[in-house]
């Protein structure tokens, strides 16, 4: 019996592996078909997918709604801007390291404050802490440039030289897309493993039933803390990857409406699925890009979209499609 279940799981997992590999290959081939602008958008999408994956480790798997994840994203981005300006670092790998370390430390500090709280108290604590960072980024303008922000030049990637001259924009976007794609694939794999590991199960157990989790001997606070740090660091990594693409960072990406956008994209994809925030990140990027381009009232469009999502597909895009697929396959099996 047990062996049979194991075999079924193995088949399902190898199927998943093949599908993921195919998607990765398609993502790898897309820049050859798409133009520079579309490639840029897709790179943004992958970056927001990483941010959403991090956020959803807390929301979907641990059952904690953070309203301060902009702080991690923004600090990851600011760390790159500082390192590039003040330390003269041009190498993307070193910038990544700086970004990850900074957001790791920030998540540890936030985590110490937040991991004892749940529900709305947790949300308000995250919000208050992130707003402190936002206020500081605005007011310490001698360091951060205040509301004008800071600009960031294109870094060098791996052994490639700096990007200049004609066609530099196109070359940079093209190369950087692959850079993001590789990191994206690594992070998706790691997070998938994490979510299906014994620790991932422990997080879900805490989400489902805190009391019982305590009564099987789980140290709830410690597990929440670890989950928080991983979540914050991953969202921070997204911010780190994001800033070389925009070339500019302002306190807006530390402000709480940006935390709302991370929440938005996660729910758009569906927080009850592992792949929800990935799809959500990409879909949100396109939705926002086209809403911003077509109307000055893009927030209005996003708001209406949000209401429609909640009303018409509360389990997000992934939830909608998986129930459609389930309905379709059961019908074809019957027929």
């Amino acid at each position: 019996m047990i062996i049979k279940i194991g075999a079924i799981k193995n088949v399902a997992q190898s199927k998943l592996f093949v599908i993921s590999l195919l998607i990765a290959l398609v993502l790898g081939a897309l820049p050859f078909i798409l133009g520079t602008y579309q490639t840029l958008l897709l790179a943004y999408g992958l970056i927001f997918a990483i941010a959403g994956l991090g956020f959803n480790l807390l929301l979907g798997y641990t059952g904690l709604l953070s309203f301060g994840h902009a702080a991690f994203f923004g600090v990851g981005a600011y760390a790159v801007a500082f390192a590039a300006r003040d330390l003269g670092i041009k190498n993307m790998e070193l910038l990544l390291l700086t970004g990850i370390l900074s957001t790791f430390f920030l998540s540890v500090i936030f985590g110490i404050f937040c991991s004892g709280l749940t529900r709305i108290f947790f949300a308000i604590m995250c919000l208050a802490l992130s707003q402190v960072v936002w206020v500081l980024s605005n007011k310490l303008y001698s360091i951060t440039g205040g509301s004008d922000g800071m600009s960031v030049k294109w870094p060098s990637i791996l052994w490639f030289d700096e990007y200049s001259g004609s066609g530099a924009f196109h070359r940079f976007i093209f190369d950087y897309y692959y850079y993001v794609l590789v990191i994206f694939c690594i992070m998706v794999t790691l997070m998938w493993l994490l979510c299906h590991s014994p620790f991932g199960k422990v997080l879900q157990a805490i989400r489902d039933n805190e009391t019982r989790a305590q009564f099987v001997g789980i140290n709830i606070k410690k597990c929440r803390f670890i989950s928080f740090v991983i979540s914050g660091s991953l969202t921070g990594l997204a911010g780190t990857l994001w800033v070389p693409l925009t070339g500019h960072i302002t306190p807006e990406s530390l402000h709480w409406p940006f935390s709302g956008e991370i929440l938005f994209l996660t729910l758009l994809g569906g927080f009850q699925n592992f792949s929800g925030p990935i799809i959500g990140g990409i879909a949100f990027t396109y939705l926002k890009a086209y809403a911003v381009a077509s109307t000055p009232y893009w927030q209005f469009v996003l708001g209406v979209a949000l209401l429609l999502i909640v009303i018409a597909m509360p389990r997000g895009i992934v939830g909608l499609f998986s129930s459609l697929i389930a309905r379709f396959t059961s019908r074809s099996e019957r027929g």
Partner: peptide, 28 residues
């Protein structure tokens, strides 16, 4: 009202959607 039986995240989201609509609605 249709969402009281659901997880409280949904109410948060709905009111967040209303927020976005009103903020731009005021400008319109």
């Amino acid at each position: 009202r249709p969402f009281y039986q659901r997880a409280h995240e949904y109410q948060l989201l709905l009111t967040f959607g209303v927020l976005l609509i009103i903020e731009d609605g005021i400008q319109m």
